[in-house]
Design a protein around this nucleic acid. Structure first.
Lengths: 189, 189
DNA sequence: CGCATATTTGACCTGGAGGTCAAATATGCC
DNA sequence: GGCATATTTGACCTCCAGGTCAAATATGCG
């Protein structure tokens, strides 16, 4: 009973994610979000209590998407280097959008004053780093990877690399540069 | 003649730089800036026509500082690896503040909608990358650096690494992780 | 001292941010 | 149909952002 809901909260979070991704937090207004979703501003506030809460949920949804994609790519068959290359290229956000990484953008804008952002960010970073470490260690064990650094070091390096690359992509960096970075990072393993 | 000015514009830009660095662009208000500078809001607008223009000047001043520090560290005597390590540690913003890099933060927040930001950012990135490339090439020529990748690739990789590290630092990443990244990056050369 | 000039200042303005809420609307059920 | 319930909605509220400006203030100079 009751009036049927007009929008699915999960879908709304997805759309909000997109808008925050493009415009950043400060430059995104509740009215704008409501318009983009085709609903009244009141409905937004009934479901998500505040702009900040919606943002947090968008960040979490984003983290989840990224982490899932990461695991999927690393579980694919094939040489370890190819898999890692695929991950680096995917995580870098170089595909279509060129918006970089939402979490990285949020840290740049808000980390100093928003604990939720740093928490979500660090959780995502930890997951990525650990997945890298495990895959690199595996590659070493099979002899596919011949580098000399500890896998944990290489994994941290790879993490920094994809974060940096996502920033460069967002700044409109050339694909040549991005390619050089990816080559350099994968080769070093 | 005329009433004596109460504040030096260059000093004001410096202070503004600091505030933007901490809070980001959107979260910083003209009133707040004026308060922090101990002057009236009107004075601010007499000197800098808009918040955005002041921000742009702050970004330029910041870029200049960073580029200068970079060159200084690379001109120091000593082994190439040490010099590069010093640069990576310095540029990473890991020293005292832990605010990351102002330019990187600005890109995260505004790149999609603010052309001035991407321009300034890319100019800084180009300078850093080129300085890295030249130094790496030199290190190769003297035999100090034994890596196999083209210097341009390694330089791009190092650029991505310091950007990524600045983000991790801003997010409050552990110094252990930062150390792993630096070790990994320098070793790979 | 009185004037011209340069700078400062806070009151003032408009627009929109972020958020609230009472009324309107669309169901299921009796 | 009439009721209870769930959801929607835009008008409404307060506050402050970003910016403007006329008046006030502090100098050098004749």
């Amino acid at each position: 009973m009751g009036r049927p809901a007009k929008f699915e909260p999960a879908a709304a979070v997805g759309m909000a994610m997109d808008v925050f991704w493009r415009q950043g937090y400060g430059a995104t207004s509740p009215q704008g979000l409501a318009d983009e979703l085709g609903i009244g501003k009141g409905s937004l506030y009934n479901t998500f209590d505040s702009k900040h809460n919606l943002f947090t949920q968008a960040l979490l949804a984003y983290s989840s998407l990224r982490a899932t994609a990461l695991v999927e790519l690393l579980d694919e068959p094939g040489p370890v280097r190819s898999r890692l290359r695929a991950v680096v290229e995917e995580m870098t956000g170089f595909g279509d959008h060129r918006r970089g990484c939402l979490v990285v953008n949020a840290i740049g804008e808000l980390a100093e004053t928003d604990a939720a952002v740093t928490e979500i960010g660090n959780a995502l970073f930890d997951r990525i780093e650990e997945a890298f470490r495990a895959t690199i260690a595996y590659g070493r064990s099979t002899g596919e990877l011949t580098g000399h650094q500890p896998p944990a070091d290489a994994a941290s390096g790879l993490l920094a690399t994809i974060i940096g690359t996502s920033v460069l992509v967002r700044a409109g960096g050339t694909s040549e540069r991005v390619q050089r970075i990816v080559d350099s990072a994968i080769e070093a393993l």
